[in-house]
Design a protein around this nucleic acid. Structure first.
Length: 447
RNA sequence: GGCCCGAUGGCGGAGUGGUGACGUAACGGACUGCAAAUCCGUGCACCCGGGUUCGAUUCCCGGUCGGGCCUCCA
């Protein structure tokens, strides 16, 4: 039994799929207008773990996981204008960087990755439906959702509608009936990206994109909808409203999941205020492996805030190094099943710290350790990025020279020439090569 | 200003109405020529003030501090 915290209920609930042969999950993906930083990948990694758990429980083929790409947005248009390039240039560049970074983190590709630009007809159709049902209205080239027409508006984020109206601090556009009404479609000028529609050439609002893509790719009601906690309002609230109104009250999702943020305030070297919150690529350049970043993101339960700094990564490195040493070379092919304790921990609202604690209890059992780590997506799918793989050692450009020095030291030790032996060890240590004298001879590894 | 969430050892972080996981760091021991790795062991914490209770880190109220949202930011 899988229990998940449902934001809509503010409580953990048992996951009861509408159809156990077709478990559906949708997670809000990136708007591709710039390079995502490590915090943007917390949902990608968290829901990747959930996706693995679901496949374990319901069968690999029974789960349909969709993560969208928002590739039409005013920020994208701004970026393209600023760089003097086409919108496609921007979206393709940042989408491929996003996928590259996700792969570094061991995130598997979702089954579906709908793009906003290829779902415009579905959006237009949904907007027309909303107008026909009296939940939306056109005004001055815009189409707006009429929040007052939906009694449940505010139920997900628990914000009473009257309060939102009273608390509105932004100047209300004159064509809005209600301050809280949000845009479904907006007009594009000639130099802006746009698509033909019954209301003139324009582009969709952000919220309708997800609603339309979900309906189109997964169905009217899905089992799980995920995203960052900041999306609860207004994005998910609006999605909820649109979809329920377009589908005669059918709820958009049965369980709403939201991940907490990374905190960058603690460490000197990674503080948001210093403007140097790093991307995955930059962190890798700084010497951290994708596995370390992934484990770092999983070191706290997904709903909790997580302090992200170098101290955390250092601790993660210690833990992961130990496991990878115990694992030795990771064979390719089929992975053992994960230990029950790990599955149990994850089944309780994705309690990754408890899962890691369970691993600590079975780490002497290599098969169990391998199964447990593989279940969490570790080590990553790219062996060249895993530490301590023998392939990595033989691929080291200095391998021959290091092997020669090691051989020299072995000879010196045989002759009990400890001064020479220690000298060679110090030389290698200075360049980050650590030696280990075991019963089967001396081996080396990069620090 | 309004709403929401959080506060646990040096650090990260689970969990619980009654001996406070796990990791990492530290320290001691075994092993080692010395180390490293490994193994064994030790010490170290529930923000403050009230309340409920036989008993509160856990439940309730207030406070302080931190974070998020209310502006198409994961």
């Amino acid at each position: 039994m899988i229990r998940l915290y449902n934001t809509a209920a503010r409580a953990k609930q048992e996951l009861v799929p509408i159809n156990p042969d077709r478990v559906t999950m949708y997670v809000c993906g990136p708007t591709v207008y710039g390079r995502a930083h490590i915090g943007n990948f917390r949902p990608a990694v968290v829901f990747d773990v959930l996706q693995r758990l679901l496949r374990h429980s319901y069968g690999p083929e029974k789960v349909i996981y969709a993560r969208n790409i928002t590739d039409i947005d005013d920020k994208i248009m701004d970026k393209a204008r600023a760089e003097g390039v086409s919108i496609d240039m921007i979206t393709e560049r940042y989408e491929s960087l996003y996928l590259e970074d996700a792969a570094t983190l061991g995130v598997e590709r979702p089954d579906l990755h709908p793009h906003a630009t290829t779902s415009i007809p579905a959006m237009v159709a949904m907007i027309e439906l909303l107008i026909a049902k009296g939940h939306a209205y056109a005004a001055e080239g815009h189409v707006l959702f009429d929040v007052a027409s939906h009694g449940d508006y505010g139920s997900l984020s628990r914000r009473p509608l009257d309060e939102m109206i009273a608390g509105a601090r932004v100047e209300v556009a004159p064509y809005k009936k209600n301050a809280a009404d949000f845009v479904l479609w907006k007009p594009s000028s000639k130099d802006q990206a746009g698509w033909p529609s019954p209301w003139g050439r324009g582009r969709p609002g952000w919220h309708i994109e997800c609603s339309a893509m979900i309906a189109e790719s997964l169905g009217q009601t899905i089992d799980i909808h995920g995203g960052g906690i900041d999306l609860t309002f207004p994005h998910h609230e609006n999605e909820c409203a649109q979809s329920a109104c377009a589908h005669d009250g059918a709820p958009l999702a049965n369980i709403w999941m939201h991940n907490g943020f990374l905190n960058f305030g603690g460490g000197e070297k990674m503080s948001k205020s210093l403007g140097n919150v790093l991307s995955v690529g930059e962190l890798v350049e700084a010497g951290w492996t994708g596995d370390e970043l992934r484990l770092g993101l999983l070191s706290a339960q997904y709903r909790q805030p997580l302090l992200w700094d170098e101290a955390l990564l250092g601790q993660v490195r210690g833990r992961l190094d130990k496991w990878l040493r115990k694992l030795g070379d990771v064979p390719k092919g089929v992975r053992p099943l994960p230990p029950a304790g790990v599955v149990e921990a994850l089944s309780d609202d994705l309690n990754t710290p408890a899962a890691l604690a369970a691993i600590a209890g079975i780490e002497h059992d290599r098969e169990a350790l391998l199964g447990a780590l593989a279940f969490l997506g570790l080590p990553s799918l790219s062996p060249e990025k895993a530490r301590h793989a023998s392939e990595q050692r033989s691929a080291d450009p200095d391998a021959a020279r290091i092997d020669a020095l090691v051989a020299e030291r072995v000879a010196a030790r045989k002759a009990k020439n400890w001064a020479e032996s220690d000298r060679i060890r110090d030389v290698l240590a200075a360049e980050g090569v650590l030696l280990e004298d075991g019963p089967n001879g001396t081996s080396w590894r990069r620090a």
